Simulated assay, not measured.
Amino acid sequence: MEQKAQHEQPKDHAVIILHGLCGSALEMGSIPKSLRKSGYNVVDLVIQNYSASAVDLTESPNWLDWCAIVENEILHLKEKFKTVSICGLSMGATLALAVASRGNDIVGIVALSPILRYDGWSIPWYQQLIRIPYFLGYRSWSYKESDPFGIKNFEMRRRVANSLKKEGVAEVGAAAIPARHLDAAQKMMAHVRQSLAEVKTNLLVIHSIDDETASPKNPELIIKEVNSEIRKIIWLGDCYHIITVDNEREIVTNETVRFIKKNIEFHCEDLSYKDLVNKSPLRDRRQ
Rank of each mutant, 00 (worst) to 15 (best):
M1F: 12
Q3L: 15
A5Q: 11
K11Q: 05
V15N: 00
L18A: 05
L21W: 03
C22P: 03
S24N: 01
E27A: 01
I31F: 05
K33C: 00
L35M: 02
K37E: 15
Y40N: 00
N41A: 06
V42N: 02
V43A: 14
V43M: 10
N49T: 05
S51Y: 01
A52H: 11
T58F: 10
P61G: 07
L64A: 04
W66R: 10
E73M: 05
G88T: 07
G92Q: 07
T94Y: 10
G108Y: 06
V110R: 14
S113N: 05
W121F: 09
I123Y: 10
I130D: 04
I130Y: 10
P133E: 11
P133H: 07
L136D: 05
K144L: 04
E145V: 15
D147Q: 07
I151M: 13
N153I: 11
E155G: 12
R158F: 13
R158Y: 11
E167C: 09
G173D: 08
A176V: 06
A176Q: 04
I177A: 00
P178S: 00
H181S: 02
H181G: 02
L182G: 01
D183F: 00
A190S: 15
A190L: 14
H191F: 15
N202W: 01
L203N: 01
V205Y: 14
S208D: 11
I209N: 01
I209M: 01
D210G: 08
P216G: 04
E220Q: 09
N227C: 09
N227K: 12
R231E: 03
D238T: 03
Y240D: 08
H241K: 02
I242M: 07
I243H: 04
T244C: 03
N247F: 04
N247L: 04
E248G: 07
R249G: 00
F259E: 03
K262G: 13
N263E: 11
E269I: 10
E269G: 14
L271I: 10
D275M: 04
N278S: 14
R286C: 02
